[in-house]
Design a protein around this nucleic acid. Structure first.
Lengths: 369, 369
DNA sequence: ACATGGGATTAAAACGTGTCAACCCCGCTG
DNA sequence: CAGCGGGGTTGACACGTTTTAATCCCATGT
């Protein structure tokens, strides 16, 4: 933070910024003013906005003209208040700094805006308390529905919302409840895939670098890894686990340092996340450890940067954009027709992408990108 | 997209998901119900919510109890409608896929929530049309203020908002207008810094990979690069420019391909963005070009992944988190006291971070992280 | 000519909260 | 004891929109 900073102050009396600056503040132009100008009643203006087909072409034209003349924009609060619900959905992810979630968010935004919904994007930062607080904001805003990647195990935080009649779809998290939609990727399978590959390449000891174990993603990937371990005929003594409190590159560096400090390195390391893996990779290389020769490495999520890493990173790819898209479709379907909506639990299967970081001696396989 | 997908459907008549499911839908609990339960008038409840000091401790306690008993959450729409403005601010960035902006967003979110404001996060994806559409959503939601990284040159899109009395602070963009706040980083200086270093290391030809030239960031960094070029006594024939329509890694790959296809490579390449640089780096390495020996490379933004790239990337660092924080403070100051607010144009100075990608023969300098 | 019907428009009643003037009660002063 | 003042509380209205039932107008059929 050694950047210098220059400030240029223009006093409050500097320019012509009276409160009625610019083109002259139009007081407040509502549906009423529009109606007056178009020579119709407020109700008709509302109809033009919401059910244009019910109003005669001529009047509609007049009203629309008045709208642009006056620069009218509908007051969403009033609209929401009257209707009882808004036309926005809330999206809460674990960490916006993780490209995985920004990709998901793109899928959500695209789908929602196609359908005329706006998205309020929020990040819990893997903190229970921030999740709670942001969900409350959603509730206050009377969002139409919520997409949630819960930090807690069950996502019951959203129960309050569901009880209020707000549809909630779990994102990147399977739901234990049948009366709810969820979209997820099979993380146990993914963990087994990754660890299995590492062991298949000949590793006899396996390190596992993970974030907070309370995160289902971490727990499931760990479970998959253990499953692969058993399948390879190895016992728990061959498994070396390092848990750090976050899932970013910085935490990965910390994890690698701990690995280096305590005992001999495992022959292969599986990271619950590409961000962690990149941090691990960096510290290992700095310490003179050869990857994949000395230690093979696999991450998770296949974020864009993994392929460009110092040693191109093997990873487990998930259909991120699709995840966001489908979750949104399910949510909006439930919003638009709560009665006839059949709850679905969608589960995708992940895919292993093999790059250099995991190739020890075996033949190159998989689909390097 | 070859992931398989499994769907599990539980029919709409499956469980007990009647519309009054869960704990029983509480009808709609508003300030009125709370008032009744606490044995006070609605006005008092409102006071408890908004000016707790004006209400006697005993009554306040009774009301607060009633609030938790009934699970009341204030109706933001009604509140906003009545008050004329909400307690949310809008943040629109160019690209959420760019870690630079997610860092800025963290600064914004942290600051806003400290002050009791919520943030509606939105991304224009560098598209004029999406910017327009999302600004309209902000306007409909009656946000209290807007933080905007404009895609157009001047940010006059937000003029409509300012005229409506909504404070707008330009983010990562200096403003030409004195009646507006802005927070930015000196991109011309940054460009000069980067290009100057490349030329100082002995390069006699300079490539410049850039996104849409309409983006001020790109234009300014280019201007700085040209300035450095002149300072090194080189002419425009030594400058080779490639513009691609986006600023992500994919676009960077495209740019590198174009560089490779057309004529001899420049001895050094400056990218308007780390994402572009990472894409360029990847393609160059794949083509067998040595970095920095054959081609030196510098990016911009110093995102987290740059240090972990195949060749650790030199870059121009900006105070991202601070950018978001200060912009938000300025905005909220203007929101809370529009009269006594002195508009400021804040300009930070960037900082060069030298890593391996730009070291040709010279001595190692700078502050590698 | 009159009744019928239907499409287009309107008037008025909500939605839940914030605000502000009025009001009540109680202790204090003269 | 009357008057006063002030903290605490209340009641009622306004915010801008949606919606429903009612009204109006005109064309059509008898």
């Amino acid at each position: 933070m050694s950047q210098s900073e220059r400030r240029h102050t223009s006093g409050p009396t500097g320019g012509g910024e009276l409160s009625t600056g610019g083109t002259g503040r139009p007081g407040t132009v509502g549906i009423k003013q529009v109606a007056a100008r178009a020579g119709v009643s407020p109700g008709t203006v509302s109809n033009v906005l919401n059910r244009p087909e019910r109003v005669a072409a001529a009047t509609r034209a007049r009203v629309e003209q008045a709208i642009v003349d006056l620069g009218f924009v509908r007051n969403g609060s009033a609209s929401t208040l009257r209707a009882g619900h808004s036309s926005t959905i809330g999206l809460m992810v674990l960490d916006l700094g993780n490209p995985f979630f920004t990709d998901v968010a793109r899928g959500v935004e695209d789908t929602a805006s196609e359908r005329g919904y706006a998205v309020i994007l929020s990040s819990s930062g893997e903190s229970d308390e921030r999740e709670q607080r942001n969900l409350r904001v959603f509730a206050e805003q009377r969002v139409r529905g919520v997409l949630l990647t819960p930090v807690g195990d069950d996502g019951e935080k959203a129960g309050a919302l569901r009880d209020r009649g707000v549809p909630v779809v779990l994102l990147d998290h399977p739901t234990p409840r049948a009366n709810q939609c969820s979209v997820a990727v099979d993380d146990v399978a993914g963990g087994e895939l990754a660890a299995g590959r590492l062991l298949g390449e000949g590793a006899r000891t396996l390190g596992f670098v993970t974030g907070p174990p309370v995160l289902r993603q971490c727990a499931d990937r760990r479970k998959g890894a253990l499953r692969a371990l058993r399948a390879a005929g190895l016992g728990r003594e061959a498994f070396r686990e390092v848990a750090v409190p976050a899932m970013n590159a910085r935490a990965g560096q910390e994890a690698a340092r701990r690995l280096l400090e305590s005992g001999p390195l495992p022959e292969a390391v599986f990271c619950a996340n590409d961000l962690l893996a990149l941090g691990v990779l960096r510290v290992l290389l700095q310490a003179g450890v050869k990857v994949p020769t000395d230690v093979a490495l696999i991450g998770y999520d296949d974020i864009e940067f993994s392929a460009a890493a110092a040693v191109p990173l093997s990873s487990v790819r998930q259909p991120t954009y699709q995840l966001g898209r489908i979750a949104t479709e399910l949510l909006l379907e439930e919003c638009d027709d709560p009665g006839g909506h059949a709850h679905q639990q969608v589960m995708f299967q992940p895919e292993l992408v093999v790059r250099e970081s995991s190739r020890r001696g075996g033949v190159p396989e998989g689909s390097p990108s």
